[in-house]
Amino acid sequence: MAQTKLNVVDDSLESQISELRSQIASLSKSVSSRAGAISEEASDFVDEAKGRVQRAAHSAAETVKAQSQNVVEAVRENPATATSVLTVVGALGFALGYFVANASTQHKSSSLYRWR
């Protein structure tokens, strides 16, 4: 009697394990197919983004090239003006650097700095 109950339980467990295995196999196939679809979508997205970045980089390069040609033409047409502008910009840069360095030196020699 006890042996037949054990056989019934054993058969029941085996059938449940078998059913679980088939469900796991089914889920595995489902996940695999979904992963493949997601992988394809991600690949398409990456390809599209790559194309957009390349087009934007090409467009930016063309814009920079055109602007630099405009600057070169302006300098060729007005060499004196270009020299004056560069001289003024250089002088302003030197003056700004001088004042920043001077302010930095004065800050270090202040009385607050000595007491720290």
Rank of each mutant, 00 (worst) to 15 (best):
E14S: 14
S15E: 13
S15Y: 06
Q16Y: 09
Q16P: 03
I17H: 06
I17Q: 08
I17L: 05
I17S: 02
I17G: 00
S18G: 03
S18V: 02
S18W: 00
E19A: 02
E19F: 14
R21F: 13
S22K: 08
Q23M: 07
Q23S: 08
Q23E: 11
Q23T: 07
A25G: 08
A25D: 15
A25Q: 15
A25E: 08
A25P: 06
S26M: 07
S26C: 08
L27P: 02
L27F: 05
S28N: 09
S28K: 03
K29Y: 10
K29F: 09
V31S: 03
S32N: 08
S32D: 04
R34T: 10
A35M: 02
G36Y: 07
G36Q: 11
A37I: 01
A37G: 07
I38K: 11
S39C: 08
E40Y: 05
E41I: 02
E41V: 07
A42P: 01
A42S: 12
A42L: 04
S43F: 05
D44Q: 15
D44E: 14
D44R: 09
F45Y: 11
V46C: 05
V46P: 02
D47H: 06
E48H: 08
E48M: 14
A49F: 01
A49S: 09
K50I: 13
G51E: 04
R52M: 13
R52H: 15
V53Q: 01
V53K: 00
V53H: 02
Q54M: 11
Q54H: 11
Q54I: 01
R55F: 05
R55T: 04
R55P: 02
R55C: 01
A56L: 06
A56E: 10
A57E: 15
A57Y: 08
H58V: 13
H58M: 13
S59N: 05
S59Q: 11
S59L: 12
S59D: 12
A60K: 06
A60C: 03
A60P: 00
A61M: 07
A61W: 02
A61F: 11
E62N: 11
E62M: 07
E62L: 10
E62W: 01
T63C: 08
T63R: 14
T63M: 14
K65D: 15
K65P: 01
A66E: 01
A66R: 12
A66K: 05
Q67D: 08
